[in-house]
Amino acid sequence: MIELDGVGRSFTIRRRVGRLRRETRVVHAVRDLSFRVEPGEFVGYLGPNGAGKSTTIKMLTGILAPTSGRIRVAGLDPSRRRTALARRIGVVFGQRTTLWWDLPLRSSFQLIRHLYKVDQKVFRRRLDDLSQVLELGPFLDTPVRQLSLGQRMRGDIAAALLHEPPVLVLDEPTIGLDVVSKAAVRGFLRDLNTERGTTVLLTTHDLGDIERLCRRVMLIDHGSLAFDGTLEDLMATAPGESTIEDVVTRLYTEGAREAAQ
């Protein structure tokens, strides 16, 4: 469902040095990145700030084109088939909303229905299902700006799934949520994956999300894949450490030390 083969992404940064001279520097955000995500997998994608997670997500969704290598998502090249890909994936950014700020939540969903050209009967059935499992009913007619963070996040997840995409990409979907809202979102995502077979790629700094949802974990550091395996395999890399947080922190530290050398 997701395939990357030797993918790289570089950025050229120019800055003024002195009054007349400019300095050019190339930053390699992603380096020779290769992995596959099979249909129905729930994969955690971890890495420290600046590791290349967001750049990877932007390439997977067609926002950025890779400098080198090959990407396929749901059989499409994201940067060249962005409109077609939008009908096959759902995307949730925890710190940004895809909803219309001044409109009631229900009206935002109606606009999304028109954007994706979803049949009215299919839309009603899908919205009823999502409203029930995500408990959207009490605030469907509330303007988005008046929703709590947990309510808005559930609205964003529903918006990403109204067109029934086979792939869901989540970037920090539980950031800032309270314990109750976080548990509700996690439970819904787990059921979505196990019962509907939706392929999910999750990036997060909340390792509780990883422990409760993901069967496979990938760790990116300085633009390269540092680990790819099950949670059990990850824990086995450090028998003396008892929590996933300890193991991931150690791997981050070792990666930073190697980069500095």
Rank of each mutant, 00 (worst) to 15 (best):
M1E: 11
G8E: 09
R9H: 12
R9S: 01
F11T: 05
T12I: 11
R14M: 11
R16I: 03
V17K: 12
G18F: 01
R19E: 09
L20H: 04
E23T: 02
V27T: 07
H28I: 00
R31K: 14
D32S: 14
D32M: 14
D32Y: 14
S34E: 05
S34D: 08
S34K: 09
F35W: 05
E38P: 01
P39W: 10
E41R: 09
E41H: 08
G47Y: 07
K53E: 09
I57Y: 09
I63C: 01
P66W: 04
P66G: 03
S68W: 07
I71Y: 02
A74S: 13
G75Q: 01
R80D: 03
R88L: 15
V91D: 08
F93W: 06
F93L: 10
Q95G: 00
Q95T: 04
R96N: 04
L103I: 08
L105E: 02
S107F: 07
S108E: 08
F109R: 06
Q110G: 00
Q110R: 13
I112H: 15
R113I: 04
R113L: 02
K117T: 03
D119K: 01
F123L: 06
F123K: 06
R124C: 08
R124D: 15
R125W: 12
R126K: 13
L127F: 13
D128I: 11
L134C: 15
E135T: 15
L140M: 12
V144Q: 00
S148T: 05
G150T: 04
Q151K: 05
Q151C: 06
R152T: 01
M153S: 12
D156F: 02
L162G: 05
E164S: 09
E164G: 00
L168T: 14
L170M: 13
T174A: 09
T174N: 04
I175A: 13
G176I: 07
G176W: 10
R186K: 11
R186Y: 01
D191R: 15
L192P: 04
L192F: 12
L192H: 11
T194G: 00
E195T: 13
E195A: 14
E195Q: 15
R196G: 03
T198W: 06
T199G: 11
V200F: 10
L201Y: 11
L202T: 04
T203A: 15
H205E: 06
C214N: 04
V217I: 15
M218C: 08
M218Y: 06
I220T: 07
L225K: 09
L225P: 02
A226N: 04
D228E: 10
D228G: 04
D228V: 08
G229F: 11
L231N: 09
L231G: 15
M235A: 14
P239I: 08
E245R: 13
E245D: 14
D246M: 09
L251N: 02
T253Y: 05
A256Y: 13
A259K: 14
A260M: 15
